[in-house]
Amino acid sequence: MAEDKALPVGYLTYYPLPLVYALIPWLLIKELYVIDRIEYRRRGVGKALMSTLAREAQ
């Protein structure tokens, strides 16, 4: 969850998927949401959420 001064401004939900035939785990992104206000949409909140997930996936 992304927050700005304790106000939730975005979130990303995902699920780990074990793929037996590939022998590597995958992550399935279910939702990526950033509050519909220009000051949050243009600040890179979505990119920050995706970057956090990418770091966790490694």
Rank of each mutant, 00 (worst) to 15 (best):
V45D: 02
V20P: 07
P25R: 09
Q58C: 06
Y40M: 09
A48Y: 06
L7D: 03
M1G: 07
E56P: 00
R43K: 15
M1N: 06
L27A: 13
D36P: 02
A54S: 14
G44W: 01
Y11S: 02
P8W: 03
A2N: 11
Y15P: 00
A57E: 08
V9N: 09
Y15I: 07
L19M: 10
D4P: 00
I24M: 12
R37I: 03
P8K: 04
G44A: 03
L49K: 01
D36K: 12
L27M: 09
G44F: 01
E56G: 06
L53W: 05
I29F: 01
R42E: 10
E39M: 09
R55V: 11
Q58E: 11
A22S: 12
L49V: 00
P16C: 02
A6S: 15
T52C: 11
Y21F: 12
L12Y: 07
L7W: 05
M1W: 04
L28N: 08
L27T: 07
R55Q: 14
I38M: 06
L12F: 12
A48L: 06
R43M: 13
G10V: 07
L12R: 03
A48C: 06
R55Y: 05
R37C: 08
P8S: 11
L28A: 07
L19Q: 08
L49D: 04
E39R: 09
I29A: 04
D36T: 07
A6R: 14
D36N: 14
R42G: 15
G44S: 04
P8L: 08
M50Y: 04
R55P: 03
I24K: 14
I38R: 10
L19N: 09
G44E: 02
L17I: 10
P18C: 12
E31V: 00
P25S: 05
D36Q: 14
T52Y: 12
V20F: 15
I38H: 08
E3C: 06
K5R: 15
V20C: 08
A6M: 14
L19C: 10
Y33M: 06
D36R: 11
G46F: 03
